[in-house]
Every structure is written in C-alpha cells, then in structure tokens.
Design a protein around this nucleic acid. Sequence first.
DNA 1: GCTTAGGGCAGTAAGGGGTG
DNA 2: CACCCCTTACTGCCCTAAGC
Length: 309
Amino acid sequence: MTLNNVDLNLFVVFDTIYSERNLTRASEVLNITQPAVSNALARLRATFDDPLFVRTGRTMSPTPAAQNAIGPVQQALRQLRASVDQFGRFDPQTSQRTFHICQRDASALVLMPDLIKALRVSAPGIRVHCHQLDRAHAPVELASGQVDFVVDTLLPHRGDLNGTPIYTDRYVCVLRKGHPLASKMLTLERYLALDHILVSGRRRGRGLVDIALGRLGKQSNTVLRVPHFQPAFHVVMETDMSVSAPLSLARRYDVIIKELPFEPITLDSTLYWHKKADLDPASIWMRNQILAAGRRQRQSKLRRAQVGS
DNA sequence: GCTTAGGGCAGTAAGGGGTG
DNA sequence: CACCCCTTACTGCCCTAAGC
C-alpha cells in the first residue's frame, strides 16, 4: 500500500465506523450519507485487502486486521488534529521551539542576559542557540532556515531579508581601575600613546577606531588583536592597555570608561530575519522579545551615569 | 485562457441479508 | 414478516489534465 494513492479521509471514516460499529450512525457523525460511508468502507477494504468490518447481527464488528490497525490510525489522527489545531498559533508558555541567532559576542553580551531572563519567565520551554556570526554566510543561513535571526550592524543588502534597528551604541575607551590615566582627561595625544587591543572577527584589516583615526591622519598603537571582546576586557583589567568598545558592553565590567577624544563612533545593531518568516507567529513573538530587550538596554543606559572624558 | 474528456466521490433509489 | 441496515447501480457534480 502506498499512501499517495490513499485518500487520508478514509482513515477518519475507519475510525468513526470503529467507534460507532454502525455505518448509519457513522454517516450521521461524519455528516455524509450512509451509502457514502459504505463506498468509503469499500475503498478501505480494497486498500487493506481485508473486510475490516463484518456484520454480526445489527452491528459491524471489526476483523483482527481492523483491531490491529485502529491503534496506529487513532494515534496518527490525534497527531494530525493536534497539528491542525496548532497551525498558525504560537503559545510561548508551552512551546518547545529552539531559536537560532547569529551574532557577535558584543551584542550577545549586551542582549542575551536580559533576553534570556525575560524568556525564563514568559517562555520556559523555549531554547536559544547562539552562533558566531559569519557575515558572508548569514543571509544564506537565514534563507535556508538554519538560522532564525541575525544581529549585526550591517548585512549585505538582499531583497529577501527584513531588518529593524534594535539599539544604537557608541564606542568608548576602556581602562583598568587605578590606571595612570584614570583621573586625567583623555586627550588625543594620551590616547595615541596607549597600547591598544583591537577586537575584530577578521584576521587583518583596520577596525572602526583606526578608520576614524585615519581620517585625522593618525593611527593607534595596536599591540593585541583578538576576535572577541571578553578576552580584551580581561587583558585591560590586568594591564595598562586599553580597548575601544561599545558603551553598553563596557558598563558590564568594573572598569574606567572614557569618551573617545575624536569623532564619536556609533554602532547601529540591527535585527535581521528572512521575509518568509514575516507572518510566522513564533518569529513575530521572538522579534518582539529581542526588540524589547533592546529597548530595556536603551532605557537602562539613559538611567545610568555620565561617562568621564 | 477556454473547452472537453475522464476520474473520483457523494447522493438517490432499489435490492437483499440478518434479526427479533 | 417487518424492520433495520448494508451493498450495489446509477447519476450528477467537481476537479484536473490535455488539447487547441
């Protein structure tokens, strides 16, 4: 028996006849005429190559083959009905869905604690898997469904992706507590004299800070290059080196924060998703959760203190 | 895009078997 | 034997594919 040649409605008829043990009552339940049920039963008999139900007095008794089939059929129908009921709905309280998010460590460090804290309350069954951002492959991964969301400053423009800003951050200079410059004004000369850490996922090329300094005809003294911010902060806290990092991230460490002594570098974090997920209730719900975490991030920044110069 | 032919399914009507 | 109820034959409707 191949399923593509079988009308799956026949299994609903099978289940109803089994429950009612009577074709006339089954027809009333199914809201079709009795001969229609009889014809459906004839097709079921041809499909299963078994009488399935035989008349014993005034009832239709199931054959051993029907007895064997009814369990799996009823289980399959239950699953189908549950799927139909769930279609187009998303209940965060009961969902077991896993969301895959590609992002850099900076946005993960800023967004995830707040996002996950909120999810543990509103959606305890939901899982979040964060993946390292590969900007070149991110659009393809979104299109294939391997990844649900990408958080990045800028993705190559594609018509099949949608994006909305989450929060805007700006770069600041980070020093350890007790650093010789901790209580001094950070001038451009003093900044250029520091040993710097460059955080970049790329193996070569200038960072945002050196691009800005380049416009002034200057260059920082970069002595360490790392792919993530977390090791950079730990090195800063143990040495007299400095790192230029997003303010919202710097605030999470016990460090001295100074405004950069040149043109401000802003960073617009954007949430990207594929257009095919536009109307997916689960995707809509998660987008709102991420955007809400971004809003809370902005509000907490406004509430907190000024940065030194 | 329209027409037509064919297949599948449900409905009606009639027939027939089983039961009380 | 009357009644219940299943099966069968026939009909009409709908959908799909092929041809133009």
